[in-house]
Nucleic acid binder design. Structure first.
Length: 479
RNA sequence: CGGGGCGUAGCUCAGUCUGGUAGAGUGCUUGCUUUGGGAGCAAGAUGUCGUAGGUUCGAAUCCUGUCGCCCCGACCA
């Protein structure tokens, strides 16, 4: 059978993924190394994802703000572990103007900055500096801030959406009076992320704490959301950190308590990025292209008029206008594709872009007052004809069902991707046989040289501890 | 940053070994016939052969430099 994307997932997953991005018109590689240009269709998906996440962040009592793109190097120096984590991938701004030298525009040597700036890879430091001034008294706490910005990390091996040198994200930074509150907050935002993945992106996740080996540079605890891709690899889709007092001490974030004593505060930070889009695409899509859960589909329904040139265009327009308004009244995003492409080409275009429901309208439907529709996730076999009178209600119900079905299908697949292994021997045996997915093993089994050798040999890593029993750890290959 | 591969039409690539006026498929444009899961025929347009230099009567082709991309490592929120 001919598929819209070649190679197929089973033939070559990573090439399939790259071709998917092109076929669905999501993004392209930018002229700047490691960076991508997100195209309108891709960005429309991001906007829906972002708006939904923003709503949930605000519901958690967080306010949005905006901090500078450039961070003084000295700020990075203040937290030793943090510097070590990001120094190797920092882009540095050293000059502030250009000059024509030998017919070429070059940084003007005269404009060299005495103190260079780093383009933010994350903003703990510059926000920490602000917090040290904003937090004076216990009355200023808790302080909860978030920003939606782009950041830059000089990646050696970029992959669209999954790892790009520049990416967009939200980073939340909260301050509390006590460690208990801070830790509770880190866990709370972790849960916000997990709920979001399930309800909005229809992606089942493994949620848990990072082991000390894998936690964020400068954190006491890192809580992660790990997704399982169709090829069994892990994707870290969001993290929430309990930063202890590290940044508070480095930046002097202190408050005067009711006891009249000056105490260092406790901070958290938590982020999700455009990487989530990569996870969304890799989780649900198939060999014919993108499959989007209705909640984040720019067009939830596309109406495709099938014309032969001999029908009454006015009747057709009247018919589709009625259908559109039925959907708009229910807040459903709909597009009628009146472009002059041939009908089969339109079909494939919207299949590749993952539109949840395709509606076909031709002379047959107009005559009988019916509508024919097909679900993207189930394909041709789900083609069904309903009466115009029930259209809006049927569509709303189908979109809702589809959102849940997509989660269920992914959850079912995840089950087959998680393997319990009792010791290293069993783990190695599975890996050597090419078993894909996550392996659940006693954490203590991974505390030795033999496990380190397996990491080296099979490119695996500890993804996170099992939330239901933290003496177990999940191990997998990752993106 | 190491190892390998590749830069030729919008896209995928042939042509390079063996130097001699730039090619195919697809897409695009136009027309007719078509149209319910990727239509057919016909006509047409499209290039600084990544880039800079060298060798040569002559370079996509040979030589040197350089830039970029992909894959595999190393590195990594």
């Amino acid at each position: 059978m001919k598929t819209a994307i070649t190679p197929t997932r089973s033939e070559n997953f990573s090439e399939w993924y790259q071709n998917l991005i092109v076929a669905a018109d999501l993004a392209e590689n930018a002229p700047v190394r490691g960076c991508m240009t997100v195209k309108p269709y891709g960005w429309a998906i991001w906007e829906l994802m972002r708006d939904e996440m923003d709503k949930r962040i605000k519901a958690a009592g967080v306010q949005n703000a905006n901090f500078p793109l450039l961070i003084p190097i000295e700020f990075f120096n203040k937290e030793a572990e943090h510097v070590a984590g990001f120094a190797k991938e920092a882009a540095v701004v050293t000059h502030y103007r250009l000059k024509m030298i030998d017919g070429k525009l070059q940084p003007d040597p005269e404009s060299k900055l005495t103190e260079p700036y780093i383009i933010r890879p994350t903003s703990e430091t510059i926000i920490g500096e602000a917090m040290s001034r904003w937090v004076q008294s216990y009355r200023d706490l808790p302080l909860k801030l978030n920003q939606w910005v782009n950041v830059m990390r000089w990646e050696m091996r970029p992959r669209m959406f999954l790892r790009t040198s520049e990416f967009n994200w939200q980073e939340g930074h909260n301050v509390f009076a006590t460690h208990d509150e801070a830790n509770e907050d880190a866990r709370k935002m972790h849960k916000v992320y997990g709920d979001y993945m399930r309800d909005v992106l229809a992606i089942p996740c493994i949620m848990g704490e990072k082991t000390p080996e894998e936690r964020f540079a400068g954190a006491d605890h890192t809580y992660t959301i790990e997704q399982i891709m169709q090829d069994g690899k892990a994707l870290q889709a969001g993290t929430s950190h309990d930063l202890g007092q590290h940044f508070a001490k480095s930046f002097g974030i202190q408050y005067l308590g009711t006891d009249g004593k000056l105490t260092h505060a406790w901070t958290t930070s938590w982020g999700t990025s455009t990487r989530m889009m990569g996870g969304l695409f890799m989780t649900h899509s198939d060999d014919d292209g993108l499959v989007l859960p209705p909640v984040v589909a720019p067009y939830q329904v596309v109406i495709i008029p099938i014309t032969r040139g001999d029908e009454n265009i006015d009747a057709m327009n009247e018919f589709t206008t009625n259908l559109e308004s039925q959907l708009r009244d229910r807040g459903i995003r709909v597009l009628t594709d009146n472009s002059d492409m041939r009908a089969p080409d339109k079909m494939w275009k919207w299949i590749k872009r993952g539109v949840p429901l395709r509606v076909e309208i031709g002379g047959r439907e107009i005559e009988t007052g019916t509508v024919t529709m097909t679900r993207r996730d189930l394909g041709k076999s789900s083609r069904e004809t309903v009466s115009v009178a029930d259209f809006g209600e049927t569509v709303a119900a189908k979109l809702d069902t589809m959102q849940h079905d997509m989660f269920a299908v992914a959850a079912e697949r995840n089950k087959t991707m998680i393997h319990n292994v009792k010791d290293l021997a069993e783990l190695e045996s599975a890996l050597s046989k090419g078993t894909i997915g996550f392996f659940r093993i006693k954490y203590t089994e991974t505390q030795n040289d033999r496990f380190d050798a397996l990491i080296e040999k099979y490119k695996i890593s500890r993804r996170c501890l099992d939330d239901s029993d933290p003496s177990f750890v999940f191990v997998a290959k990752s993106y």
